[in-house]
Design a protein around this nucleic acid. Structure first.
Lengths: 358, 358
DNA sequence: CTGAAAGCGCTTACAG
DNA sequence: CTGAAAGCGCTTACAG
């Protein structure tokens, strides 16, 4: 029978040391798997640790200089599957390496982002992985994050800095992806191709439009400014804006969309106008969210593999934490792959015959 | 010009105190908004804190007894939209209350769950919100979590305990939901209704089957054991198992599915057999994932509002942390709402005329 | 309203 | 291979 007395006091290194007839220092060495400790001693200590249900106190360790095992992960919105999968990948890879994830989300607000980061910083993260809110300012971020903390920026460039403001940067190959999407439509014979959705001033939209222009230019097509339709990157907005595509005659016969949400909204908007994606208008999205394959028609899109990006982001950060990364900030560009489905298979209505097979 | 010398040392309370000509104790009181401090002093300290870019050290505070502002959130899989939205809700509500989220995921493995929790415990969370892996054992959990930490179990009962093993429990109204779904199909005239998918030994499957049986019993229908088809809760498995519904003659004309993934898989499996949900077989899902509305036909399902559940879970936990919750562990059951869409609209093939309108 | 002192649980040199 | 001592940054009584 163990004593039924109330035990509110925490089990500490001193308790273990006393029980083993050792000093705290030795027990501490066991905890850190130091080879200095004799194997028998180590075993005895381990057993006692287990027996008393010892719980390591990271706070005390980090206070003394033990180094943090926490990494802060800040995303825009976890309810967005793109970020949710990214976060899942980050968390899994970090946990595997013995790190703990401190989570924060910003809802695309730079103000909340500052608050969230400040709050997370109090927990002494060893590093930060940040998918910045739109219009994040590099200088403001540097003020909360300091000069010395390893930071990895994901998915979006920062304002007021070339790219990631001196931090590591994992980017999607937006430009290439949009180019491939546009080439796919060109190969199907389309000539009048719109770029639909997104905000002109967001860096990802800018890059995607760039790839779209590249492809058109390479095909010798002068892009009609009316083919660039802006709208908020949500399904509803996109559905409302669908009409803007047909304001001018001749209207485009296909659209590369800023993302899948916009593409699905556009398909709904087309349907409301008696047109149908995949039969009389070709649509390509960006992201490959789960609904893309389930939509009807299934959505041709660019897969960004957010979960793999999360794992990649975590691994890049772990390499830096282990001193295995180059001293200079690195920019890594992750590939993006075209998934051809039904929504882009509409026969071209263009006057030219199809150029080539995709 | 400030001095360009390297400043690697952290700014501490002592620095602020020295700069203001005060003691650390007074500065500490300012940090905690104590009314003891004179307003002018407070203002001076605040300004200096800002000027020197002071960052509070939670670890040191918690060491001394300052209390933690972290809450551990452990889910099965963040890549699953249900949990992602739940996590988003939890994180938002916690952040609003000044708490930080420590994230972990288990991938449905009780072993990883133990490890993840042990790792998070080292950061001294003030509480834990846990959506347990299948077959989580209450006693093992108690060993990592201890006796004194507030814990909220979400979504699933624990093994080896009545419900949540003495902890707070936020449950979905699985039984009621499945009953409503079954009643919906009965009202459309169906008599031979299957319960499709899920593992018999999971608590949520058990509860949902219970509601299904309740509805059949209330309608005076004896459930045919062949109508209970088990399968892993994934789309692929469900598609493979679809045939099992038609092994016996007469076959069911409708199915209540364990969840949306299973329902969508079943719809695919039906299509492969030349049958179509919504025209010659009625299907109801559970969860209302994003794809449900986008599927074709759109899936009738039970909305669980995971994001709202997350907010609710966080609020329940915050109430407990503030001592506003009842002393005894509480079980809260969250409602679930039927969303009628096309997949359940098939005309009944039963011999009886439709009973009533839904 | 403010200060001096003790101590939370750990790790890091430094001895031995 | 192990121990004694100092100190990380904070908060909490206790004085004044």
């Amino acid at each position: 029978m163990s004593s039924p007395a109330p035990r509110h006091r925490r089990v500490t290194l001193a308790d273990i040391a006393a029980a083993c007839g050792l000093s705290k220092a030795t027990v501490s060495l066991v905890l850190r798997d130091s080879p200095l400790v004799h194997a028998d001693t180590r075993a005895r200590v381990r057993a006692e640790l287990e027996r008393q249900g010892y719980v390591y106190h990271r706070g005390a360790a980090s206070l003394r200089g033990g180094g943090s095992n926490a990494v802060a992960l800040v995303v825009n919105d976890l309810a967005n599957p793109f970020f949710a999968e990214f976060a899942a990948g980050v968390d899994t890879a970090l946990a595997e390496a013995g790190y703990v994830t401190l989570l924060g989300s910003t809802g695309e607000s730079p103000e909340r982002q500052q608050q969230v980061l400040a709050s997370l910083m109090e927990h002494e993260p060893a590093a930060v992985i940040l998918s910045p809110a739109e219009h994040s300012d590099a200088a403001r971020l540097r003020r909360v994050l300091g000069e010395r903390l390893p930071v990895l920026v994901f998915n979006r460039a920062l304002d007021g800095a070339d790219g990631a403001g001196g931090w590591d940067y994992l980017a999607l190959d937006n430009r290439h992806g949009a180019r491939v999407a546009t080439e796919h439509l060109l190969a199907l014979g389309h000539r009048a191709i719109a770029f639909f959705g997104g905000h002109r001033d967001s860096s990802s939209c800018h890059e995607r439009r760039g790839g779209y222009r590249d492809a058109l230019a390479a095909a010798g097509i002068a892009a009609d400014p009316a083919w660039l339709v802006e709208c908020a990157p949500t399904r509803l907005e996109a559905a409302h804006q669908a009409g803007a595509l047909f304001a001018r005659d001749p209207a485009p016969t296909a659209a590369v969309c800023y993302n899948d949400a916009v593409a699905l909204g556009l398909m709904a908007g087309l349907a409301a106008r008696g047109r149908h994606a995949g039969t009389d208008f070709a649509v390509v999205g960006f992201d490959d969210i789960a609904e893309a394959a389930a939509a009807s028609p299934a959505l041709t899109t660019l897969a960004t593999a957010p979960r793999e990006r999360g794992v990649q982001a975590a691994r890049l950060m772990l390499a830096r934490l282990r001193g295995q990364a180059p001293a200079l900030p690195q920019k890594v560009t992750a590939p993006v792959t075209l998934r051809v489905r039904a929504s882009s298979q509409s026969p071209s209505l263009s006057i030219r015959a199809p150029g080539a097979t995709a």
